[in-house]
Amino acid sequence: MITVLFFAKQQEQIGKEKLERSESQLVVSELKEILMNDYPDLSLDHTMTAINEEYAAEDQVVNDQDVVAFIPPVSGG
């Protein structure tokens, strides 16, 4: 089981701030694809990803018990 955290507009798009998912042993890009298929309003195209509070690449493997956070782009001034 993995925990997936969402922030800002992503929370609005899926109606939750976190999900518990059974997927593991897949790479970040695969997890993004699964989530965007499950939640058609969700956009993860321009997000940074962290696994266990460390930035992760698209090809990094997500393991059981990991906490994955999708961090949306931030703008401001």
Rank of each mutant, 00 (worst) to 15 (best):
T3K: 15
T3M: 05
L5G: 02
F6L: 12
F6D: 00
F6P: 07
F7A: 04
E12Q: 11
E12Y: 00
Q13P: 11
I14P: 06
G15V: 09
K16Y: 14
E17P: 00
E17M: 04
K18S: 15
L19V: 08
E20R: 09
R21V: 10
E23S: 13
S24K: 14
V28N: 07
V28C: 10
K32Q: 14
I34F: 12
L35F: 10
D38H: 08
D41P: 05
D41E: 15
S43T: 04
D45T: 06
H46G: 00
H46D: 14
T47C: 15
M48L: 15
M48G: 00
T49Y: 09
I51D: 10
E54R: 08
E54D: 08
E54G: 01
E54I: 07
Y55Q: 00
A57C: 03
E58N: 09
E58S: 13
D59V: 06
Q60T: 12
V62G: 01
N63I: 00
N63Q: 11
Q65W: 04
Q65C: 02
V67Q: 15
V68G: 03
V68Q: 02
A69N: 02
F70G: 04
I71L: 14
I71Q: 01
V74T: 09
V74Q: 03
S75W: 12
G77W: 13
